[in-house]
C-alpha cells in the first residue's frame, strides 16, 4: 500500500460522505447533496462511485468493480487497482465473493445477498434534468411529488414510437415516493433493484448521493395499457448458452457478422467453468 490514508480520502471527507449516505438511506431515492472531492481520475470515470466506495470500504472487505458487466475493461481495472493501492483491500472478479461491488451501468446477474453493498457510478442523478434544466425547479417537483412531466415524456415515447422507447436509465419510483434515476443500467436490470443488498449511488460531478435500502419497493414507471417490459436481445449467449442474461452484441468481422454474449463476464465464465483459464491478471 502506498502512503495514502486508508482508502485515499481524508477522514473528515469520509465522515461527510458517510453522513450523506446515512441520510440517503433514511430517505430512499432522495438525492442528498454532498461536497464531492476532486479525485485522481476525470469526471465520468466513476468519481462519485469511487468516493462512496472509499467511505464504505473496511480493511477486511473484498472489492469487485465492473464496467458494463465486465471486470476486465479499463475503467474497472483502474478503479480496482486504485483501491488495491490506496486501501490494500482484497479484490475479486467473482460476484459471490465480493462484499463491496462498484458498478458502471450493470447489476450483476448473480443475485446479491445481505452483507453486500452495490455502489453505482452515476453520471446524471436527476431523472427530471433533461425535462427541466433548473435545479430549483426539479427540487420543487420532488418536494411536491410532481412527476407528471416524466409521465408525459413516457407518453410521448408511446405516441412517437408505439412503445416506451427508453431502454436504459429507465426511471423508477422508490417506496412510492421519490422518482429516481437508476443510473444508465439497461432496463433489463430494473427488476433486480428489489434486492437483499444495500444499493448506494454516487454522482461525483453532480455532487449527489442516494440510496435504496434492502428489500425496498422499486417500481419502473409505466402505464396500465403499456406495462413495463424489461427487454433484451432475442438470443442466447453464444459462449455459455444462457437465455436469461443481458447480452452484448459483438461485431466479429467486416461483413457485419455478430455474436451475442453475456455482458456479465463473471457470470458467463462461471457457467462455462473456465474461470481461471488465464483470465485473471497477475495483480490478483
Amino acid at each position: 500500500m502506498d502512503d495514502y490514508n486508508f482508502a485515499y480520502l481524508d477522514e473528515e471527507t469520509k465522515r461527510m460522505i458517510r453522513r450523506a449516505i446515512l441520510k440517503g438511506v433514511a430517505i430512499p431515492g432522495y438525492q442528498v447533496p454532498f461536497a464531492s472531492r476532486e479525485m485522481p481520475m476525470p469526471y465520468g470515470w466513476g468519481t462519485g462511485g469511487v468516493q462512496v466506495s472509499a467511505a464504505c470500504l473496511t480493511p477486511e472487505d473484498c472489492f469487485k468493480v465492473i464496467d458494463q458487466g465486465a471486470d476486465d475493461t479499463t475503467n474497472a481495472v483502474s478503479i480496482r487497482k486504485f483501491f488495491e493501492r490506496t486501501a490494500g483491500v482484497a479484490t475479486t472478479e467473482r460476484t459471490a465473493e465480493a462484499t463491496v461491488i462498484q458498478t458502471r451501468h450493470r447489476i450483476p446477474e448473480t443475485a446479491l445477498t445481505e452483507g453486500q453493498i452495490l455502489v453505482y457510478q452515476v453520471p446524471i442523478p436527476e431523472p427530471l434534468r433533461f425535462l427541466e434544466p433548473r435545479e430549483t425547479e426539479t427540487r420543487r417537483m420532488h418536494a411536491l411529488e410532481d412527476y407528471g412531466l416524466m409521465h408525459v415524456k413516457l407518453y410521448e415515447d408511446i405516441a412517437r414510437h408505439g412503445e416506451i422507447a427508453t431502454a436504459y436509465a429507465y426511471p423508477v419510483k422508490v417506496e412510492g415516493r421519490y422518482v429516481m434515476d437508476p443510473s444508465p443500467i439497461p432496463k433489463f436490470d430494473n427488476p433486480k433493484m428489489e434486492m437483499a443488498a444495500i444499493q448506494l449511488f454516487g454522482a461525483g460531478r453532480e455532487q449527489r448521493i442516494y440510496a435504496i435500502p434492502p428489500y425496498s419497493q422499486v417500481v419502473s414507471l409505466d402505464f396500465e395499457d403499456h406495462p413495463f417490459v424489461p427487454g433484451k436481445a432475442p438470443h442466447d449467449c453464444a459462449l455459455c448458452g444462457a437465455s436469461d442474461t443481458y447480452l452484448d452484441e459483438i461485431i466479429t468481422d467486416d461483413a457485419g457478422a455478430r455474436m451475442y454474449v453475456c455482458s456479465d463476464t463473471d457470470y458467463c465464465a462461471g457457467r462455462r467453468g473456465d474461470y481461471c483459464a488465464g483470465r485473471r491478471g497477475e495483480a490478483i
Binding site: E11, R18, C56, T58, E114, I117, I198, P213, P214
Partner: peptide, 19 residues
C-alpha cells in the same frame, strides 16, 4: 487506529440504518 476503526464502525451504523 482511526481510519480502520471508523470504517468498521461506519459499516455497522450503515447496516443498522439500512436494516
Amino acid at each position: 487506529d482511526a481510519p480502520a476503526e471508523a470504517s468498521r464502525a461506519f459499516r455497522a451504523v450503515l447496516e443498522a440504518m439500512a436494516r
